[in-house]
Design a protein around this nucleic acid. Structure first.
Lengths: 146, 146
DNA sequence: GACATATAGTTAGTTATGCAACTAATTCAA
DNA sequence: TTGAATTAGTTGCATAACTAACTATATGTC
C-alpha cells in the first residue's frame, strides 16, 4: 500500500484549499483598505500580464488555470476598469492580445508590495524548506491530474 | 531575514491554490460522470454532517471556512435537493440545527469512495512525510491569518 | 478549391462567493 | 425590567465559477 492512503479527517482541507483562500481573502481585504478596487481574480490576471504583456486570452487561461469563459469575463471587467485593452492579432484574427494600460502600470508596485507583505505574514514561522516541499507537492498534484 | 522571503515567480500559485481547485474540479467531474448531481461545495457541507449530524449553521461556517450567507444558501440548496432539513433548536430559537435525510445517507459511501480515490490519484508519488509537511504548513498559514 | 476539423473567443444558465445591511432571539447591565 | 449589545440567520447586490452551446477564423486533406 502506498504511504499516502488518506485518512478521512484529513481529506477535507486538501479539497477545499483553505490556506490559499485564506491568503486570497486577506489580500483582498488589504486591497479594499487601501481603496484599491479590483478583485483578487482580476489581480491574478494582471499579475501574469505584468510578467509578460500582450498575452492571448488562451495563454491567460493556461497561466491562471481558469477556463475560457472565466477569462473572457475577467478581461471584460478589466477593460471596463480601463486596466487592459483587447487588440486583435494581425497574424491570426481569432486571437485577442491583451495589453496593459498606463493605469495598470500604476497599480503594479502598490499591489505587489501588498501581496508580498501578505504572503510573508501568512508564512511566518514556515521555513524555506517547507515551502519548497509544498511547491513541489502542488506541482506533482497538478501533473497527476493533467 | 526570515528564510521565507518570497520570490515573485512563486507567489501566484500560493495565492490561487491551484492544487486544491484542481482536485475539487476533478472530483466534481467524477460526481457528474456517476450521475451524482451535487456540487463540490454542497458535498463539503455534507462531509461535515456525515462526521457529526445536527450541526448549527454557525458551526458549519467554522468547519468549512465559509461565511454565513454562503452556508445559508448552501443549506437552502441542499434542502431543495432533500438532502438535509433545518430544525429550530429547542433551547435557542435563533439556531437552526441541520440534519441529514435518508437520501443523504445513501450518497455517503458512493461519494466517500470517489473522494478517496480522487485524492489518492492526485497524490500519486507524494510521500506521507510530504503530506504531513503540507498539512502542517496549511494549518500554520491559517493560524497566522486568524 | 471544398469540406471536415480544430482553435479562439463569446453567450447563456446555474451555482457559489464576499460584503453590507437587515430581522429576530438572546444576554447583560443599569 | 427596560434598553443596549451580541449572536444566528437571511436578503440583496456585484463578481466569479463551470458547463454547454454557439460564432468566426484557420488548418489540413481529398
Amino acid at each position: 500500500m502506498s504511504g499516502n492512503q488518506f485518512k478521512r479527517g484529513e481529506l477535507y482541507s486538501f479539497i477545499t484549499g483553505l490556506a490559499s483562500t485564506a491568503i486570497a481573502r486577506r489580500l483582498q481585504k488589504n486591497f479594499k483598505q487601501h481603496d484599491i478596487d479590483i478583485t483578487i481574480e482580476q489581480w491574478s490576471v494582471l499579475y501574469h500580464l505584468w510578467k509578460q504583456d500582450g498575452l492571448s486570452q488562451q495563454e491567460l487561461c493556461s497561466a491562471t488555470f481558469r477556463d475560457k469563459p472565466s477569462i473572457t469575463r475577467l478581461v471584460d471587467n478589466l477593460e471596463k476598469l480601463q486596466l487592459v485593452k483587447r487588440v486583435a492579432s494581425h497574424t491570426d484574427r481569432r486571437i485577442n492580445l491583451i495589453y496593459l494600460t498606463d493605469k495598470a502600470a500604476l497599480l503594479r508596485d502598490q499591489t505587489m508590495d501588498m501581496a508580498n507583505r501578505t504572503l510573508n505574514e501568512a508564512l511566518t514561522g514556515v521555513t524555506a524548506d517547507e515551502i519548497a516541499v509544498c511547491k513541489s507537492v502542488l506541482q506533482r498534484v497538478y501533473d497527476n491530474l493533467k
